[in-house]
């Protein structure tokens, strides 16, 4: 069942690079990561690629396959036509390190800027009681495997490096939403900081992030839009505007 596959792989580093043509064997049932490994083992021993679990659970092998942000471990070779050349390039929104590996440290910096969960001070270990239905809302966002495909595809940063400073990106909007919907978290002003400090307002809900999410998290519908709506509610609530509650709405 082995056949030949034409691949074009981007090779290079931060200074220079380009697409290299490779012909490699492919077997039935293989995913793109399998053929990249075969190229590595037989033709390009120093081809740089990130991967870990090879089962869609760790989010390491993010790359662009024929221009689409995908996990290489979850992309079947058979999903392309047999005579089609598959072009593999690194994530575009992040700086190149080498070949298919990019510098994703932007995401880890943003993660550090979001205030951590705060547990109620009066709850003893094991004393928390939560309904399944209440934890499920946040659990949807905690499925995130941090592949950063949503960050990569989001045009607010994909084509606008200058926005990175003030825009946390979809991955971190769902992190904020997750904490905001957490039944026990003590911090109450998360929606507002999403808007004022993490650039929620820059998102114009084109849903590109939702489309590429390998965990099928409804990023736009379940996290971004509800937060945007609430932010608007709070901001234009006449009672709050008069009483100055907006400014005072901090920790309970």
């Amino acid at each position: 069942m082995t056949r030949k596959l034409n691949l074009r792989i981007w090779r290079g580093d931060s200074t220079d690079g380009g697409l290299k043509d490779v012909v490699v064997d492919v077997n039935e049932g293989e995913v793109v990561l399998d053929v990249i490994h075969r190229v590595q083992a037989t033709q390009m021993g120093d081809l740089a690629v990130r991967w870990n679990c090879k089962a869609g659970k760790c989010g390491s092998c993010s790359m662009e396959i024929n221009g689409k942000p995908r996990l290489a471990c979850m992309t079947q070779v058979a999903s392309f036509d047999e005579d089609e050349t598959i072009t593999i390039t690194p994530l575009r929104a992040f700086p190149i390190i080498k070949d298919l590996v990019t510098d994703v440290s932007f995401n880890y910096k943003k993660a550090m800027e979001i205030p951590a969960y705060e547990h109620p001070t009066d709850l003893a270990p094991g004393a928390a009681r939560m309904e399944q239905v209440d934890v499920e809302r946040s659990q949807e966002f905690r499925k995130c495997i941090e592949c950063f495909l949503c960050q990569n595809t989001c045009h607010v940063i994909r084509d606008h490096e200058e926005n990175k400073k003030s825009f946390a990106g979809p991955r971190f909007f769902i992190r904020i939403a997750e904490l905001d919907m957490h039944p026990l978290d003590r911090i109450k002003n998360r929606k507002r900081t999403a808007q004022e400090e993490h650039g929620l307002g820059m998102c114009n809900i084109t849903k590109c992030c939702t489309e590429v999410c390998p965990e099928h998290i409804k990023i736009t519908d379940n996290a971004i839009i509800p937060m945007k709506e609430r932010v608007v509610d709070i901001k234009y609530d006449p009672a709050r505007m008069f009483s100055g509650l907006l400014r005072r709405e901090k920790r309970d």
């Binding site: 547990h119 094991g126 939560m130 399944q132 957490h182 978290d185």
Partner: peptide
């Protein structure tokens, strides 16, 4: 104790009917 500690750090485990 180690599991309950994770809950105090924000982990969201599946729940029983009583909410445990």
């Amino acid at each position: 104790d180690r599991i309950w500690e994770l809950e105090m750090w924000g982990a969201l485990f599946d729940r029983t009917k009583e909410g445990k």
